[in-house]
Each structure stands twice: as C-alpha cells, then as structure tokens.
Design a protein around this nucleic acid. Structure first.
Lengths: 204, 204, 204, 204
DNA sequence: GATTAACCGAGACGGTACGTCACGTCTTTAA
DNA sequence: TTAAAGACGTGACGTACCGTCTCGGTTAATC
C-alpha cells in the first residue's frame, strides 16, 4: 500500500510456494528507514524531511528508499501507520458517553502532537499523487473504525435512528474537529466537544 | 494583508498629502503579478508555481515580487481573494431553505474548481508561517460571513435556539464538507448536503 | 590477459586429469558477454557501455562478468582483440611500397571505424589501472608486429641503415598518424601518408 | 572558447558601448573556480575532479560553474590554458640545436607533471563533445606555435627545404613523443629525442 | 535644473534537495 | 562452484528554486 509494487504476492505463480529470484529486500532496511523517518518528522516536521536526510540517518542509500517508496509522502504515511494505534472505546451501553470518551482521547492526542504539519502536508500531496491519495484514504478509514464501531453499537442498541447514514454521521462528528484543527486554529477541548455533541445528538 | 508593509497608504500620516520620496510603486506591476499568479495556479496548481515563473510570466523582476509579498503563499492568497466573490443568499425567512441555497452554490464552486491544491497548500503553509496563518484565518472568516448572517437571521427569527453557539454551528455545517473535500475525497453533492442538514437541523 | 585469474587451465596440475570442484564456467557466457560488449560499443561507444547494460543485453548476472574481467576496460580490450585481425603486407622487396600498402590498410580501417572513442578511453584507463596498462601495451605490440616485420625485412635487404633504431622508426611512422587521430583531428589520407613517408624515408 | 556563450561581445548592438542587462558575472568567481580546479586536478587527476568538489573548494554554487562551462572538461581545459606558458626557444641560427632545446624543455615538463591523466581524459572527452574538441584543437595549436616558429625560421634560413610541409613536419616531430607518452609508455629522454631528430633531419 | 531615493528589468550568486545512474559487492535459489 | 537476479551503500550527476545581491536605467518629489 503506497509501496512500490514490486514484491507483490505470487498471483500468477504455478506453484503454491514460489519466490522472486534475486536477492530479497532486507527487512532491516525497512525498519531503519521508517524509524529514521519518524525521528526526523518529530524533530522538524515534514518540511525538515528530505530523502537525503532519511538515507543518512538510516545509514542507507537513497536508492534503497526509492526502491520501496515512490515519494517521501508515501514513506511518511507508512511510518505514521506503523506508529499510531487506534483509539479504543469500551461498550458503555451509552452513545453519548462513548463519544465523549472517544473525543477525550482524540483531544489528548492532538494536544500531545502539537500543531504538526504532517496531516496538512499529506493532504496536499494527495492532490498530486494518486498513490498517496489512496494510502491516505486507507489511513483515514482505519482511524475512523473505532468511531464507526461506536455508531454501529448505538444503532443496534436503538440509541441511533436507523435512518441516519452512519458515514455522514462520522463526518459530521469528525469534520468540525478537523476543520478547527486545520483551518480556524480554534481550541479543541471539552467545551467544544460538548457543544458539538449537543448539536449533533439533539435529535436523539 | 500579508503584504510586505513598506509602502502602505499613509493612514497615520501627519499631513493630509504626504508621499514617500523616490519613485512610487507601479500599480501595473501588482496587476501583472497577480494575473500571472492566477494563470499559473490554474494551469498547474500551487506546485507549478514558482516565484521565478511568476516573474517571467509577468515580465517583472523577482525583487519586484518580494518587495510586495513575503512569500508565495501570501501572493496566492491575495490573488485568490481578488478573484473570488462571496456567496450571497437572500432572506427567505426559512433557515433550511437558505442553507440549501448556500450549499448549492458551494457545491457548484467546488465542482468548477476541480480538486485544486490551493487550499491544502495554504493550510500547510500556515503551519510554518504566522503571517500566512493570519491571512488564512482572515480569508476563512470572510468566506464564512454569509453563513454567519444566515444563522443570525434564523436566531432573530426564532428558527434557531439562542442556546446554540453559532460559531460551533458554522463549524458543524462547514466542517463535514471540508472534511470530505480534503480527506475522504467523497462526493460533495445535494444528497450529501441533505443528509448533513437532516442531522444538524433535526433538533429544530 | 586481464582475465581474472581464477579458473585458468591447469598448467601446473599434478595429475594429468584434474578438475576444479563445483560447477564449471559456462563458455557460452563468455561468448554472450563479449558479443554484447561489441554491440554496445559499436552503438554508443565506450561511454554508452556500463556493466549493467552488458549484463542485461547478454542475459547474464553482473557477477558473472566481474568473475571473468576485473574492469570494463579489460572486457573491452578482450572483445576488441577477438574482433580485429592484424594487417598483412606481402614482401614486395621494396620498403616504400610495403609501407604504403600498410598505411593504405590503416587508412581504410580508421575510415570504417569512424572516430571511435575506444582507444582514447583505454589510454585514459591505463593511467589508473596497471592491468589495463599492461594489456594495452600488449595489444599495441601485437598491432605493431606487421610494421616491425616490414622494417626487419628492409634491414635485411639493406633498404634501411642498420644504424636506425627500428623501434624508434616504428614510433616515427605511427606516432604522427595517432597524433592526428587523437589530437589534431586532421585527415588521415594518402597525401598525408605520402608526405610522412617522404619526410621519414628521405634519408634512404 | 569552450565558455558557455552568453557574455559575448555585442555584435548586434546599436551603440558601440553596450552592456548586457542584469547583474554581471563576478570575475572573482572565475578565478576561484579555475584555481580550485587546478588544485584538485593536481591532487587527484581529472578522475578526482567532480563539479561538487570544485564548487565546495571554490566556495561557489554549482550553478555558478555550469553557468560558465558546459562540462568539467571545458573547465579543465581553460584552467590548463591559464596555467601553462609556452615553451620559448631563442633563435640560435641552427635548426637542430633549436629543436634540441625545445625538446629538452618538453622533456622537463613531462617529467615534472608525472603521468597525468589530464591529456588522455581531454582526448576522450573531445570524442563526444564538439566544444571540447574545438577547445582542445585550439589548445594544441597554441602549444605548437613555438615549434612552428622554429621551423619557419629554419625555412627562411634555408636549413629546411621549402618542399617540406611544415605542419606534417610538426606532426612527425611531436607525434612520436605523444605516442610514447600515451601508448607505449616508453621513456621520453634525450637519447630518444636524439634518435628521433636523427631520423627526421637526416634529409637536410 | 540638479539631486536624491526608491523603483524597475534582468540575471548572477551561494545554497539545498531533487531523482537517476552506475559502480562493485553481497545474498538469495537453482543447477 | 557457478549461474541469474537483483538488493545494497556510495557518490556524482545536472536541474530547479530559493531568497538575496548587484547592475544600469527610470521616475517622481525635493532642493
């Protein structure tokens, strides 16, 4: 995914167990490159990230990077995916409470990450690079999963009308938060989330 | 705004008619530069925009650009502002109808502009450059004005509970649209807007 | 010669029939590599020749080439030697006529080969690589043999004073031709050769 | 000459004294670049010369070099030309003696320069690059001038038959020396020169 | 009318990063 | 052990922009 498509699974192989000829890619390189990428991004953002720098820090040739990722954004995305674990919300049997728990964790994450330039940069890159576009979509989808699960549970419970399009619901919940973060630069805190939930859940 | 503050109009001048010594700036340069900027952005997006290119296209020295704008983002922002006129929605006496009208126009604009990289780029630039940050905020504020007006009218009319934080309301309405545009890449059309309004206005 | 000395014939072997263990080298590889080398050199000169390209064209791994030749110059030299056959001049009993015949053939060869970059490249390579130096010297020596033979015959005949250092004579004859070819880029044709022989043989 | 043709004389200018617009090239850059080039070549030959290295040593951007010279060979040639002064031989009224003096100096130069790779490299480069070809021809022509002068004097004096093509004579004298230097690697010393002159001047 | 100061075009300048290419070596499976 | 394939670290390539800096020349207001 966003990886340069070379070492794909042997779809057309005659035998069940086949191998690509030639020297296989060294997994330690992947590790080193991803680690170096995260380091540099954390230090100076995506702007401070150059392929030269990653190569130098990882002790790796530039070609070794380009062999695996087609752009630095694809690289950053993969590094990011490997680094973040999904937000987990237990089943409280109460939609509002679960959403508050979810957003509390989200608030914390945003707070700790500062005003990173990673997401904006990836969004921009996705405009030009279809591969990044796809990877970013996938990344977003993964990160939305917990929220989708919360809503699904609420539907089954009857806390949420079955008429509601859950995808749109997700967007209505997350959209304003992202909007604040990216555009207005407003504070993302409990009062904001409460007002947001008030507005969106008032129908229930 | 975002203009390099050197030759601004003499707002605080002691004398009614004062002038800076030396040759005054040529207004035709401003025009040529902004026009060239819009051309290039429309052709190749902000990525295809370099100061060298703008200077060449406008038939202008690079210094003439740097004398007026501190960065290419400030330049793009000003070019953009000069180019877009605000969405206008008449007073129908009906919140839902006014919002639908507003979003219809928004949909049309998004459709005609394709998937431009301008906004993402500015968002990213705003991460590093405080001046761009301020200009972008101002730009957003301007573009939100019609929506704010719609909500204010509704409040006065009683269509909207006075408890509702109108700023948050704006964010809840616009956020999901921006979210789709920037992140999920989903379609921004009438069905989407209808579902969005259903969700947000259901309390009313 | 210039071959990587690993699998040479067992000249000093104790037993009449001995064999190295392991898989023997495939002679078809030598052929394919040399052929590919000549092809590429003829198409794009030595500049267009990379080991990667030779390997790809010959359908051979790079290691298979490095196992046999220590450098691409050694490879080119061997390919060249296999490709060129010595100039042959019959005994006319007349030094001047024999030399003219020799140079006629030389002119023809130069004409047909265009202004190849092979010799210049090898000369340069010989500056850094002692092995190439030796191989090139050997190659030159081989190609001078017919000329040396002509001069020896002339000496025996008495057409050439025994005081003359035949090696220097060779250099005086060939030097100017090479000089033109490599440095001044002047035409190498019959009038030039005639003037050259007039000058050098005027003593006789 | 071999210079990137940008700052040529104003052939088509209306006025006798015209100037190119824009900031003029900085002559100190030329100096610094040529000096750095000579340094590096003397240390590690042309192989050790990279544009990056020259730029670094000269404290100059790479573009500043590429703006002036189209290739590193053109650069080396100009550096060389600026560095070498012509061999000077007084009028002794005796062809043989003058030639011996000339070659003595030539021997000394070769001896002091070691077995440089500069000339071989330039010869090879001249195969691909017409500009280098022209510059090299010009360089050779300049360096031959003293020898041509010697022969002209001899002609006027009557020491040299007017039938002799002086250009060919130059090639017959210099060719063998170059041939030794480049190809056979033989010693270039007084005995060799004496034999050479014996052969070539025996007609006189 | 001369001076002065900021403007203008053009383009050179020191940098930084780019993505590609070839090098010669190493690591895999298979013969 | 050789073979094909190809990954590996290295290092140079030539290009594109960056933002700054000289140039000669222009255009007003001030002296």
């Amino acid at each position: 995914m966003a990886r340069t498509a070379t070492a794909q699974s042997a779809t057309t192989a005659d035998l069940p167990i086949s191998r690509k000829p030639g020297r296989p890619r060294d997994a330690r390189c992947d590790q080193a490159i991803l680690a170096a990428t995260l380091d540099i991004v954390r230090e100076g953002g995506v702007v401070g990230l150059s392929i030269d720098a990653v190569a130098a820090r990882a002790g790796v040739g530039k070609a070794t990077i380009y062999r695996r990722w087609s752009s630095k954004e694809a690289l950053v995305l993969e590094a990011l995916q490997a680094d973040t674990e999904p937000i987990d919300v237990p089943d409280y049997g109460n939609l509002r409470r679960e959403l508050e728990t979810y957003f509390d964790q989200l608030i914390e994450r945003f707070a700790s990450s500062g005003s990173s330039d990673v997401l904006p940069h990836l969004i921009e890159a996705a405009c030009y690079d279809a591969e990044v576009r796809a990877s970013l979509d996938e990344y977003i989808k993964q990160r939305q999963k917990p929220l989708v699960a919360i809503l699904r549970r609420a539907s089954q419970r009857g806390d949420l009308s079955p008429d509601v399009d859950r995808n749109v619901m997700v967007e209505v919940l997350v959209g304003p938060v992202i909007y604040r973060r990216l555009l207005t630069g407003g504070r993302i805190d409990r009062p904001f989330v409460r007002k947001l939930l008030d507005l969106v859940l008032s129908a229930g």
